[in-house]
Structures are given as C-alpha cells and as structure tokens.
C-alpha cells in the first residue's frame, strides 16, 4: 500500500503521520502554491498558458518539491513523445508542385 500513502501525501497540506519535518510543507506554509495546485497546473505550465498563478511560483514549486517534480517530468516526457512521433513529417515534394499548378489553374479559370 506504499503507493496509496504516497498519493495521499500528494494532497497534503497535512502530513499523514504528523511528521511535518519535510521542506515540502514549508513551501505551502510560506504562501507558495500547494502541491494540489501545482499538479492541477502542470499542463498549463508546460504549455506556457498559466492563467491563475504566476509562472515563477509554479516553477519554484516544481523545483523545490520532490513529490511534484516527477509529475512535471512525466507530463513533459509525454509531450516530447507526441512531438517526436508526429512532428518532423514534411509534405511530399510532389504535393508542393501539384499545389502550385492547381493554384495557377484556379487563377486562370477564376
């Protein structure tokens, strides 16, 4: 059940066993965003679309929080995989030539 405890810990402002000695909880206490907020904002942060929290606050949470940091890496690895798989595909060379011809034809006809 270790994983369950870890997950519960993610929402934690409140540590489960009262051992509030980690620096993570200091992050919350000092008015920075909570782990829950950080996880909720991870995609907006990666997309450069943060609307409800300043970017530097979110960044410093991920930099400082060892529970949230892997999640940032996880989402970023996912985005990277999508980009790698679907990006970089160029249009066939003949297509460009075909288009130019089509446009010229449309131009004379229209």
């Amino acid at each position: 059940m270790a994983i369950f405890d870890r997950l519960k810990g993610l929402f934690g402002g409140v540590p489960q066993n009262g051992n509030a000695d980690s620096s993570d909880s200091d992050v919350d206490a000092s008015g920075m965003i909570s782990c829950e907020d950080a996880l909720r904002l991870v995609n907006e942060y990666l997309d450069g679309e943060l609307a409800s929290a300043p970017e530097d606050q979110v960044r410093s949470h991920f930099d400082a929080c060892e529970r949230c940091y892997p999640h940032l890496q996880f989402e970023s690895a996912f985005k990277e995989a999508v980009r790698r798989a679907a990006g970089g595909q160029a249009a066939p060379k003949e297509l460009r030539a075909k288009l130019v011809a089509l446009l010229a034809q449309a131009d004379t006809e229209g």
Binding site: L39, F74, A77, E80, A81, A85, A86
Partner: peptide, 28 residues
C-alpha cells in the same frame, strides 16, 4: 486531480521514461 497513469507508474517509472521507448507508429 491525480493523473491515474502517473499513479500506476509511480513506483516504477515516475518520470515517464517509458514514453520514450514507444515507437512512433504506436503513438500515431
């Protein structure tokens, strides 16, 4: 609020390295 896939890999691959191992065709 917690990504269920991330929860599933938390103990083995929390940073999602597995994404890198998946071939382009499968992702497409």
């Amino acid at each position: 609020p917690v990504n269920p896939v991330w929860s599933a890999v938390l103990g083995v691959d929390p940073e999602g390295d597995f994404f890198e191992s998946i071939v382009d065709e499968r992702i497409l």
